[in-house]
Design a protein around this nucleic acid. Sequence first.
DNA 1: GGGCGAGGGACTGTATACGACAATGGTGGC
DNA 2: GCCACCATTGTCGTATACAGTCCCTCGCCC
Lengths: 233, 233
Amino acid sequence: MAGDKGPRRSPQEAVRAVREDIIRGVFAPGERLTEDALATRYGVSRVPVREALRVLEAEGFVEAKPYIGVFVRELSEAEAEDLLELRSVVEPMCAARAARNRTPEQLGRLKELLNLGWDAVHDGRLTEVPRLNSRFHEVIAEASGSEVLGQMIRQLSQKIAWVYAVELPRRAEDSWREHEEILEALAAGDADRASALLAEHIAKATNAYRRRVREAAQAPEDPAPTAARTGGD
Amino acid sequence: MAGDKGPRRSPQEAVRAVREDIIRGVFAPGERLTEDALATRYGVSRVPVREALRVLEAEGFVEAKPYIGVFVRELSEAEAEDLLELRSVVEPMCAARAARNRTPEQLGRLKELLNLGWDAVHDGRLTEVPRLNSRFHEVIAEASGSEVLGQMIRQLSQKIAWVYAVELPRRAEDSWREHEEILEALAAGDADRASALLAEHIAKATNAYRRRVREAAQAPEDPAPTAARTGGD
DNA sequence: GGGCGAGGGACTGTATACGACAATGGTGGC
DNA sequence: GCCACCATTGTCGTATACAGTCCCTCGCCC
C-alpha cells in the first residue's frame, strides 16, 4: 500500500469510482492519468487500477498510449450529437421492452429512485441529480429483460451522463416529472406509451442540451460555474 | 514465461485473441476460463489475461464471479433477437453518416474487404467469411466519423458475429452482393440509399438467422456441423 | 449407511519487483 | 547564442510471489 489516503474503496469498485470521477468532471478532458496517482487516490495497488483503465478504454472514456499513459478523452460536439441521436432510437425501444418485462422489484427500485430524485431536486442537492438520473435510466435498461441489451444501454447511459454533465439545472424539475409519467406507463405495462414518453423525454433533454451549448458558445465564460454538472435529463 | 507453447502473440492482442476464440466457438458457452490456462495458451502472464477478461466482461462476452472465475456467457435466443433489432435501427443510421463522412482511404479498405469476401465465398473458404463480414461492418462504423459511436457499433458488430456464428453459408453469396451495393452507395455519398440498403441487408440477414434457428429447433442434431460458423450477413 | 465438519488443493485477488520505453533537462560542440 | 546529442528520470508493461476465498473430498460421528 502506498499512502492510505483514499476513502479505502473496495478494489472491485475502482472501475466505477474512476468512471464516476471522469463523468463528474473531476478529471478534465485531455488530462493525463497516471496509474500510480490513481492507485494512491483509491487506496489500492496498480493492478486493479490497470484493469479499471482497460475497461474504461474499451468503453471509450479514456485513451491509452503505450508507454506514455492514459488520457481522458474529450467528447466533441459532433460526437455528443451522435450519442444523443443514438439514444433517441435505442432507449424508446428499450422502454417498450421494459413495459412488457419489468418485475415488481424493478418497479420498486424505480419508484425509490424517483423519490430520491424529487427530494434531491427540491432540496437543492443538485450534485446528486445526474447520478440518480443515470441510475433511473439504467434500471429501465435492466428491466428490458435482455442482459446483453441492458449492458450496452448502460454504457450508452453513462456516456450520456458525461454529455449532460454540463447541462443546466433548470430542466431538472421537468425531467423528474417526466420520469414519473414514464414510471406510470411502465407500471401499467403500456409499451407504446412508455416508448412514446421516453422518446419525448429524450427529445426535450436533447433540446435543452443544444440550448446550453449555444448559450455557452455566446458566453465563453461559464456564467454560473456552480450550476454546471448538476443537470441530467 | 510459463510454457512458450502458444503462437507467441503480442500481449496487446490478448484481448482480441480471446474474443475471437469465443466468437468462433473455441470456448463453449458456460465454459469456465481459468487465467492460468489462458496465460499458457497465449504465451503471456496472468496480468494481461486478467485485463483482457475484464474488458470482455465489460463487453458482455464473459461473466466474472468473484473468487470463482470467469465463464463464457451464452446468448439466449431472446437476447439474439434484441441484438438484431438494435442493429436494425443503429446500423442504417451509421451508414447514413458514413455516406457523408467516409474518406477515400476507407472506401479503399471496404473495396479490398469486398474482394476478399467474394474470393473466400467463391473458393469455399467459408471459415474466413464471418471475420471479413465483421470487418466490413466495422469499417462502415469507423467511416461514420464519430469515434465514440464507432466504438459502440464495433462492440455491437462483434456480438452480432457471435450470433451469426451459427448461420447457414447459403446466404453468404447474397450477402456479399448486397455489400457491393452498399459500397456503391457509400462511394456515391448517397446517405438515404446507403441507409435503406443497410436496413434491407440486415432484415434479410435477420430472416436467415430466424430460419436457421427454426430449422435447428426441428432437428436438434446439427445436420451439417462443418457448415456451422461459416455464415455472416 | 447417511449427514456433517474439518482439511487440503486450486484458483482468484492483490501486492511487490524488475525491465522497457518515452519524455525531459543538461552539456558539449558548432 | 543555438542546436544536437546523451544521460537521467519517470511511467508503463510484465513477471513473480503471497494472501484470501471457495470447492471438494475424506474422515468422523450419529
